[in-house]
Amino acid sequence: MSSLEEVRTEIQQIDRDIVGLIKKRTELADKVLESKIKAGLPISDENQNKVVLERAVDNAIDFNLDTNPVKSIFQILIEMSIERQQELSGKGKFP
Rank of each mutant, 00 (worst) to 15 (best):
Q75A: 06
D15Q: 10
I14F: 01
L41D: 10
G90M: 05
D45K: 03
D66S: 11
I78N: 04
I11R: 08
L33C: 03
I37E: 13
A29S: 15
K71N: 08
K38I: 07
R84G: 01
L88G: 02
E46F: 09
R8N: 11
E6F: 09
E5I: 07
I82Q: 04
I78D: 01
G20Q: 10
N59E: 11
P42S: 06
N64Y: 07
Q48E: 15
I22A: 06
D17G: 00
L28I: 08
S81Q: 05
V32F: 03
K38E: 14
N59S: 13
I78R: 03
A39Y: 05
D58N: 12
L65C: 08
L33A: 02
I22H: 04
L88D: 04
I43M: 04
G20L: 06
N68H: 09
Q75S: 10
I11M: 13
Q13H: 13
I61G: 00
I14S: 02
E54R: 12
I11F: 10
G92Q: 07
P95L: 11
K50P: 00
E6C: 09
S81R: 01
D66P: 02
S35I: 08
Q85E: 15
V70K: 00
E79F: 09
K91R: 15
E79R: 13
S2E: 14
L65E: 06
L21D: 05
K93A: 13
T9H: 09
V7C: 10
A39R: 14
E27M: 13
E5A: 12
L4N: 10
R84K: 15
S89N: 15
L65Q: 08
D17K: 00
D58K: 13
R25T: 12
V7Y: 11
G92A: 08
I22Y: 04
S3V: 13
L28F: 11
R55W: 07
Q86W: 04
V52G: 00
D66H: 08
A39D: 11
Q48A: 10
R84M: 07
K23Y: 10
E10I: 04
